[in-house]
């Protein structure tokens, strides 16, 4: 499956990646190769095989519902670029 330039731009946008114009053909080629590889795997008959959700053959451990974390806001906010009134400030986002 050959990806178009527009597919590459869309994927880059979804991942919020800035890519250089001259690299687009190579990304298209590499990503297409990955999809070809997936297509190759899809040809295998997997009837009766349970989809693998995790490579480790184990199940999730659960923790008890207890509050174990204390307030470390000052500590965390010391490395934030901008804060005010206890909030982290970010470039304005309005939908």
């Amino acid at each position: 499956m050959a990806l178009e330039r527009s597919d590459v731009l869309n994927i880059a946008h979804l991942a919020r990646l800035a890519i250089a114009e001259q690299d687009i053909p190579e990304y298209a080629r590499n990503l297409s190769n990955i999809l070809d590889f997936v297509a190759q795997m899809e040809a295998v008959d997997t009837t009766g095989v349970e989809p693998m959700a995790h490579p480790m053959d184990a199940s999730q451990r659960l923790r008890e519902d207890q509050v174990s974390e204390t307030d470390e806001r000052a500590h965390f906010q010391a490395i934030a670029p901008a804060t005010e009134a206890g909030l982290y400030l970010v470039p304005k986002v309005i939908e």
Binding site: A82, E84, A85, G86, L87, Y88, L89, V90, P91, K92, V93, I94
Partner: peptide, 11 residues
């Protein structure tokens, strides 16, 4: 989205 000098506050 109140005004934080043109920025948004995150809690």
């Amino acid at each position: 989205h109140e005004d934080f000098h043109g920025m948004s506050g995150i809690d």
